[in-house]
Computed example of a mutant assay.
Amino acid sequence: MRHYSSIDRLIQSFDQGLRSLVPGATSAHRQNPAQDSQSDLSVKEARHVAGLMRVNHSGEVCAQALYHGQASTAKLPNVRKEMEQAAVEEQDHLAWCEDRLKELDSIPSLLNPMWYGLSYVMGAAAGIAGDKYSLGFVAETERQVSAHLEDHLRQLPQKDERSRKILEQMNEDELHHRDTAIGAGGVDLPLPVRLTMTGISKLMTKTSYYI
Rank of each mutant, 00 (worst) to 15 (best):
L175E: 15
H176P: 00
R154Q: 15
E172W: 03
R178W: 01
E174R: 01
S163F: 07
H148S: 07
K159H: 12
H176G: 04
P157E: 09
I182M: 10
L153T: 06
R178N: 02
E150Q: 14
L167M: 11
H152Q: 12
S163I: 00
R154V: 10
L167P: 00
D179P: 01
D160V: 00
E161N: 11
E150H: 13
Q158C: 08
A181K: 02
D173G: 04
K165G: 00
L149T: 02
T180I: 08
A147W: 09
H152V: 02
I182E: 06
I166N: 00
H176Y: 11
L153K: 07
R164E: 07
A181C: 02
R154I: 09
E174M: 03
R178K: 14
E168V: 11
E174W: 04
E150L: 10
D160W: 01
I166S: 00
D179E: 15
R162I: 10
D173M: 14
Q169M: 13
D173F: 12
D160Y: 01
D160R: 05
Q158G: 07
E161T: 10
R164M: 06
E168Y: 01
L153V: 05
L153S: 08
T180N: 08
D160I: 01
S163Q: 05
E150S: 11
L175I: 15
L167E: 01
G183K: 15
D173S: 15
I182N: 00
H148D: 11
K159D: 14
Q155F: 09
E168Q: 13
L153H: 03
I182D: 05
K165R: 15
I182S: 02
D151C: 09
D151P: 04
P157R: 05
D151E: 12
L156T: 03
E161L: 12
K159N: 10
M170R: 02
Q155D: 12
E172K: 14
A147Y: 04
Q169N: 08
H177M: 04
S146E: 14
Q158L: 09
E161H: 13
S146C: 07
H152S: 06
E168K: 15
P157A: 08
H152P: 03
G183R: 15
A181S: 07
H152T: 06
E174I: 05
I166Q: 03
A147F: 13
E150W: 10
D160A: 01
H177I: 10
N171F: 03
I166D: 00
K165V: 03
D179C: 02
L156R: 08
L153P: 02
D173E: 13
Q169R: 14
Q155A: 12
A181G: 05
R178I: 05
H148Q: 11
S146T: 15
D151T: 14
E150T: 10
K159T: 15
L167I: 06
L175M: 09
L156C: 04
E174D: 09
L156Q: 05
A181T: 00
R164I: 02
H176E: 13
R154K: 14
H176I: 14
R162L: 09
S163W: 00
R154P: 05
D173Q: 15
L175T: 12
I166P: 00
H148L: 12
H148F: 07
L156I: 06
S163N: 06
L153Q: 10
A147N: 08
Q155M: 11
A147P: 04
P157W: 06
